[in-house]
Design a protein around this nucleic acid. Sequence first.
DNA 1: GACGGAGGTGAGAGCGCTCTCCGAGCACCG
DNA 2: CGGTGCTCGGAGAGCGCTCTCACCTCCGTC
Lengths: 345, 345
Amino acid sequence: MTDTAPRPTLEAVAARAGVSRATVSRVVNGGDGVREPLVARVRKAVEELGYVPNQAARSLVTRRHDAVAVVVAEPETRVFADPFFALQLRGISKELTAHDNQLVLLLTEGRDDHARVARYLAGGHVDGALVFSLHLDDPLPGLIQRAGIPTVFGGRPGWSGDRRGVVYVDSDNRGGARDAVRHLAGLGRTRIAHITGALDQTSAVDRLDGYRDVMVDADPRLIAEGDFTPAGGEGAMRELLERCPDLDAVFAANDLTAAGALRVLRESGRRVPDDVAVVGFDDMLPVAEQTDPPLTTVRQDIEEMGRLMARLLLRAPDRRAAEQGVGAAPSSVVLPTTLVRRASA
Amino acid sequence: MTDTAPRPTLEAVAARAGVSRATVSRVVNGGDGVREPLVARVRKAVEELGYVPNQAARSLVTRRHDAVAVVVAEPETRVFADPFFALQLRGISKELTAHDNQLVLLLTEGRDDHARVARYLAGGHVDGALVFSLHLDDPLPGLIQRAGIPTVFGGRPGWSGDRRGVVYVDSDNRGGARDAVRHLAGLGRTRIAHITGALDQTSAVDRLDGYRDVMVDADPRLIAEGDFTPAGGEGAMRELLERCPDLDAVFAANDLTAAGALRVLRESGRRVPDDVAVVGFDDMLPVAEQTDPPLTTVRQDIEEMGRLMARLLLRAPDRRAAEQGVGAAPSSVVLPTTLVRRASA
DNA sequence: GACGGAGGTGAGAGCGCTCTCCGAGCACCG
DNA sequence: CGGTGCTCGGAGAGCGCTCTCACCTCCGTC
């Protein structure tokens, strides 16, 4: 069980294959510049010995780590109750795996962790960082920028610091919101309400802006603040019904909020979509398909966002290249959204 | 921006503090055996230079990595739609952070990834592994055991291989299920049905066993197979209503399933809990509290399970200690559950 | 006052790998 | 047939750190 067998080294493989360490190294790293028969002999030795390169030794000299940190700066449990982040993580994982990179997960809770994360990133343990920092007042992006490693943000960081060189991947929240509201208007609805998300996050602000783009002179009482949770949606919906009992449509900042709103609408005796049409955002499948009635919503490809973040990061020029002016820094990407029609609007 | 500044080394700190490398190393690693004035001088130099130890160099000689792999062997998206895993991850993260360990996340999808994961773990990149492998037929536990690194499983691995030395953390699924069913019986219910989870997972099997412990000679038609999803719960509930229209209680394998069942019960015109009492499992807050009526359920402390897994792993004797027979291997832990009474039963 | 010992400090040898030279060998050209 | 250029393989120098020794200082003790 406790196999004392020391792991074989390059040296051991070289000895077995009857070549030098350098040759084995070349083969292990792609085999360029080594003649076929030798390559085969080396590979055979590697196989027989079960050789696995020592990553620490390799990193020591190459200064690469083939590892990327994923920083999740969400103080609340919410990020977890929410499949959103999990899906992005999955996209990231797939892309990193495809490039033989490891994923180091850094969850932060509260300010105390910020210093820890900053130190870790500055410590050169990873080649780059993917950061989810959704809050407007979050100091983390600034700290990370100072750490000086390539970084891609998930969602537009709502952050007033130096924006130069900031790369992010986001959905077209504003455009998606516009589509949603236009859809409702196209159904002949005129009293279209909006339940916002947590307004300390850029996505919520952008969706609100999109709503306003279409409802240029909307009754301000048609806007109620939510927080992306079902409970928030319920509260906001009650508020709206009280203020504007004549509303005939609701655009909710996300599907969970919409689910809460639907519940309150049903309680109040309103029929959806007959009396009030409802549109959500995200197209989170377990939620959007399970509501009663199924939710018309704005889909964003969350997993693809994660993939893209990783791709952008891996493509980022490393320090040496940057110093030589080689390879432009990648720029931010905003992914399109699509309206998914179901029964609720 | 592209700071060419090479990171300072031990050597540099030593020079600045006017001591030897060895002394700096001692201070950085706790400062034992170094006199106070020197310690202060070294710390000052570290501070001024912004020295951060090179983990690769350190690992190269110590053969420790202060990193733990978390392997999630769930081919389906489901694990993600489900806050369950996320909560455990959070517990793990907290505990690892408290011990200055990093979390390397390995998500596997499908068989192809198994070899990759096994190679990684065997490659000695991490000091141990926390493995979530919920499926009965999963080859991963075997592969990992062969990799020969300390491992703790999340949930009892349903695996027919060599069980010696297998350490896991699980909830008392069977006991919790018994409590749930006894509670229903205590309410005077006699036709108590069970919707199972996905029966290729030990937790589902254990909960079914718990149900059977109480319902010793239950009508087999009172058991319907679900899959831990709301949709599965709906299907199973319809099936049950058709087979046994006289049932007066349902114990669902988890809260999501219960939510689906509730919907079908409502559709069928039955009142909960008056006509049919319902109990879930997990006490997943966003779900259990939001159902109509709120769900009576069996709570397990998911985050604590994660914490415990990490604690067990970190306590596991390292190889050297094991060779000397020092430090017993930790043993598995089964955490108790508690019944949470809400309105549904 | 000399000696033993304990407690601090420094020197140096690697950990396993990459990568830069160099030298050897080969083909091809003159 | 000798020279030239190129390609392939090997030797060796570190990467930054830890850790074992050996040494040195200073205290207590007889």
